[in-house]
């Protein structure tokens, strides 16, 4: 299982990557492997607000469906449209293929998230 060091993680298996005040959100390698072959990603719309702990997208595999929760609050500034036609990208590289990009509302919320080290312990 890959768990890049520079990212923040949640117990519900999302990751957050911060770049210039923006945050990219996706699901972890562990999550994609548990789900199996991803067949569909139901994406939100640009401009939607997301809030910590609430779902903003749904990922479907052949035999499971999983709600993806926002790790932090914010407003969506971009969605990864490539996932609409090629949902399998999530399986191929879950860290390269983010789901949404948001404008962070409160950077201090990041402090509540797990480090790579803590997350690795969780999934062992």
């Amino acid at each position: 299982m890959k768990t890049p060091k520079a990212l923040y993680y949640t117990e519900s298996h999302e990751w957050v990557k911060v770049e210039d005040g923006h945050a990219y959100i996706g699901i972890t390698d562990f999550a994609q492997s548990e789900l199996g072959e991803v067949v569909f990603v139901e994406l939100p719309e640009e401009g939607d607000e997301v809030s910590e702990g609430n779902e903003f997208a749904t990922i479907e595999s052949v035999k499971a469906a999983s709600d993806i929760n926002a790790p932090v609050n914010g407003v969506i500034i971009a969605v990864n449209e490539a996932l609409e036609d090629s949902p399998e990208l999530i399986n191929e590289d879950p860290y390269e293929n983010w789901i949404i990009k948001i404008e962070l509302e409160d950077e201090s919320q990041l402090e509540n998230l797990l480090s790579a080290e803590d997350y690795e312990k969780l999934t062992k």
């Binding site: 067949v39 569909f40 595999s61 052949v62 035999k63 499971a64 469906a65």
Partner: peptide
């Protein structure tokens, strides 16, 4: 196909 919509997977959702 598209079984992830259905009750046996989605349950209360």
């Amino acid at each position: 196909t598209l079984q992830a919509r259905e009750q046996h997977i989605r349950r209360e959702k």
